[in-house]
Amino acid sequence: MDRSRKILIVDDEPNIVVPLQFLMEQNGYQVKIAESGEAAIDLMERFRPDLVLLDIMLPGVNGLEVCQMLREDPELKETKIVLVSALGRDVDMAKGMAMGADAYITKPFSNREIVARVNELLK
């Protein structure tokens, strides 16, 4: 596993962040946490993650907006984006994909599924 691969987890709910962080670290990724959209944008420049696990319902700037910003930034637009959201309707999923996400995972998810998607995207 490539040690330099970096993942940013953006979620305001610590009870999901803890297991996600554990899971990603167990799979050999370097992980940082952001609890809001603003914090995520902030970290993006310094941390330069390869992939973002992004919640949609965030306080302040929401996940879809972060997604759009990443896609418009020439330096960051290659970042892989996985939306991890409790919004589970088809319409929500379609909107997320329309905003340029690489994958959309609905909560609750299986650990295996999310790890598989992340590995696949970072191959």
């Binding site: 297991p19 899971l23 409790a86 609905t106």
Partner: peptide, 15 residues
């Protein structure tokens, strides 16, 4: 909220 809770539970127990 139930999705979020279920996600935490599932992820933790699977880990």
């Amino acid at each position: 909220r139930s999705r979020a809770s279920a996600a935490s539970i599932r992820s933790a127990i699977e880990a």
